[in-house]
């Protein structure tokens, strides 16, 4: 099973994603993509780590290509597409075609687990025109979201802790 979970910032996506993964159960692997670059990131990472505590996830950090993740698991929780995209686009040895790279990584993960839960973000509804780099970032996330949603068995949008099933 492949499940995609989207929503605005602070909407409760992570909590719902953890619950979804836990419902699949078995041996669970959490793929963390946020680089601990500064105090704010460290704080966010810590909050998420606390939330996962005692829920039975193993954690693996992935700041580059998903294809580098060699672990296998019954259930994998990948959080999140926006960090993953940023890591690939803005790192010095970043992937040339970010969207294809992420989709290759998705196939790689699907080969390694029974259930994959992917968290993404809604970031493109504020009407602001950004610089080219940011627009490309938004475009890549939009394309990845559409591609994963197409493959997914279920897609949810979380709105203030309420999960709305879209597919």
């Amino acid at each position: 099973m492949l499940v995609l979970i989207t929503g605005g910032s602070g909407s409760g996506k992570s909590e719902f994603a953890e619950k979804t993964a836990a419902d699949f159960g078995g041996d669970m692997l959490y793929i963390a993509t946020m680089k601990p670059q500064d105090a704010e990131c460290v704080k966010r990472i810590e909050r998420h780590r606390k939330m996962r505590e005692g829920k039975g996830f193993r954690t693996v950090e992935c700041y580059g290509s998903l294809s580098d993740v060699m672990q296998t698991a019954d259930t994998v929780l990948l959080e999140c597409v926006s960090n993953l995209t940023a890591n690939l686009m803005f790192s010095p040895n970043g992937a040339y075609d970010t969207v294809s790279e992420i989709m290759r990584g998705m196939a790689h993960l699907l080969d390694r687990c029974g259930n994959l839960v992917v968290v993404t973000n809604e970031i493109s509804s504020d009407g602001i025109e950004y610089d080219d780099g940011t627009e490309q970032y938004m475009k890549n996330i939009g394309a990845v979201n559409c591609k994963i949603a197409k493959m997914a068995d279920a897609v949810y949008e979380v709105v203030y802790k309420t999960a709305v099933r879209l597919k």
Partner: peptide, 11 residues
């Protein structure tokens, strides 16, 4: 309607 790059045209 929908967010930018959300796949509206393709839909």
């Amino acid at each position: 309607f929908g967010g930018r790059y959300s796949g509206k045209g393709e839909y």
